[in-house]
Write a protein that binds this DNA or RNA. Sequence first.
DNA 1: CGGGGTCTTGAGGTGTTTCAACGTCGGTGG
DNA 2: CCACCGACGTTGAAACACCTCAAGACCCCG
Lengths: 251, 251
Amino acid sequence: VNPSPLQPFLDRLMKRSALNEAQQDAILTLPGRIEQVDANRDFVRLGERTEHACLIIAGIAAKFGQTFDGRRQITAIHLRGDMADLHSVVAPKATSALQALSAATVMYVPHTALRDVAARHQALAEAFWRDCVADASIASEWILNLAVRQAQTRTAHLFCELAARYGVVGNGRSISFPFPVTQERLGEALGLTSVHVNRTVKALRDAEIMDVRHRRVDIPYWEHARRYATFNPDYLQLGPSPEKKPLTIVT
Amino acid sequence: VNPSPLQPFLDRLMKRSALNEAQQDAILTLPGRIEQVDANRDFVRLGERTEHACLIIAGIAAKFGQTFDGRRQITAIHLRGDMADLHSVVAPKATSALQALSAATVMYVPHTALRDVAARHQALAEAFWRDCVADASIASEWILNLAVRQAQTRTAHLFCELAARYGVVGNGRSISFPFPVTQERLGEALGLTSVHVNRTVKALRDAEIMDVRHRRVDIPYWEHARRYATFNPDYLQLGPSPEKKPLTIVT
DNA sequence: CGGGGTCTTGAGGTGTTTCAACGTCGGTGG
DNA sequence: CCACCGACGTTGAAACACCTCAAGACCCCG
């Protein structure tokens, strides 16, 4: 049995909102066109008016902001299962671009379809709203992270967040997940130059906190990394503490 | 005739969403308890489960994040007319504290009442959702501002944003609005120490870009400041460019 | 007329950037 | 199969933005 490409999206919604069978079914039968997107390619451009929201089915994507003088900054990272611009349903004019960080599979779900299920199921309207609120909460934490932590703890905090969002934080101590992103781009997410990212990543490796290399992240002792980064997953609004959830393998 | 304390909130909603008379009326007749809050007092504490959302009727409030080692950061600033934690309707557990930056008047609107009007008027449910999305868009811009701009342009950008949100950006060149916030706290919003805020503010004054003093901000040449800060108000999602709107006086 | 909070200024220290060079790796074509 | 190439990663040294610490000035309120 081939699971729906929408299954990861439903899983994500259900970590934050309770949905009955009819509502779950409405999500799983959403229409949409599926496309492959090469790494480093924009699939939503700045200022564009879209008529569909982008569901990340595989790979990693990022939201980019930019200043007039051309400096870029990643303002959000989206993993498989994330509807990267669910907000576009109520604000179709893109205020930032979306780009694939790795080769990615994206499903374009028409706004009309999303509006339709939201109108038919109040619980879904609320679930969509709640998911946008969670994204805002993550953005707030990024503001905190950029402003108060310095390079090493800031970097550690980002990867703790990604581990928690991937759902790889289990009872096993050792954690690992794919991260096929260059140091240059990682710098654009952390507000650091690629040179400093390199030194920072090396320092984290030497300190045995985490190993960011070969397109992967390895965290040998989760509890150690969590404390080093002073990471508290509450802001992710993923329900009960992820430590209690069954371990999910991501390859 | 005494205008409803909810009028500024309705104005804010209508800058982003079209509402008919019945819907406008539903907003204006929302129930709620009104309270004075002293400067520097939390009116929502971290981790608290709330049963009402906080509408800022007068004064300035801020959302605070904090790390374990006690460093604080302002992750959002809220002006009169903002429902500071509208998101709490769908995520009642506060992931950050709300504090009055100046003496403020706050109206506590029960979640039940907000859910009720949202259920009765789909347009209101959408307007609430859209307002949360706009807050998220502002947070994204703050991430950009913290990561890529340095102290002077970063500070200038923040005040350009506040001017645009206050609605004081008119056809007149000179702009002025109240800002009764200490340099210490301004630093917590900008990710700078109060000492550096002081030097930065002085530099902006000497360059005649903006004068932040005496609990006010004065911007002598809006266009000049706008360009210096590379400020583009699109992300505020306040509809047509604010330059075209009639000048509003804020005292 | 104090006094506490806020603003101001100086001097030295630190984290990060900049610039520049070199190393490594995976793919491509001869 | 190896030479080449471009992208990415690594390292060093100097410059810079911002921080820290510290002292003094201002200013409103009691």
